[in-house]
Amino acid sequence: MLYQILLMLIGFILLIKGADFIVKGAKNIAQKFHLSEILIGIVIVGIGTSLPEIIVTITSTMTGNPDIIIGNSIGSCICNLLLVMGVASICNPLKIDDNILRVHLPVSAISILLLAIFCNFGAGNYVISKFEGIVLLIFAILYIIYTVHEGKEEVQETRGK
């Protein structure tokens, strides 16, 4: 058992190091192609911190352990909101700004509802089908496009000042 726990710890370290490595590589490539800083910042770093989750998802799909995917997805969110935000606000009070309140939080609530509906009322008995997967994927891509757009506007505003 101890051996398994140790292996798992090594697994986490490998995953995080690997994600870090990929982010650095992606940054270098992006800079060589003169992509904007915002695109690098939001997309590469944003997805980079989620890379461990993504790789674990793919692995657990391949090995036929679907419970780990949904569990990891919901569990990570709850951990992010309560533990990460909790610890962060103990270090330093956090201010929720306008944009987060008007756009990001509602989008987050909608995506949770969307997943709940797909899981409970969608086609088939409590299965997330390929089609529903594609809808969720499109939702995620639209969100990425929006954040990049938002980032560009912010930079223009600060330059204008």
């Binding site: 944003g46 997805i47 911190t49 989620s50 989750e53 993504i54 998802t57 793919i58 657990s60 799909t61 679907p66 995917i69 949904i70 990891n72 997805s73 919901i74 990570s76 969110c77 992010n80 909101l81 990001h104 989008v107 987050s108 995506s111 949770i112 969307l114 997943l115 797909f118 997330i128 089908s129 390929k130 529903e132 997967g133 594609i134 969720l136 994927l137 939702f139 995620a140 969100y143």
Partner: peptide, 14 residues
């Protein structure tokens, strides 16, 4: 990252 976790992970799996 919550939005990614909720949409992207089940999506990739599904």
């Amino acid at each position: 990252s919550n939005i990614f976790n909720i949409c992207l992970l089940p999506a990739i799996g599904a």
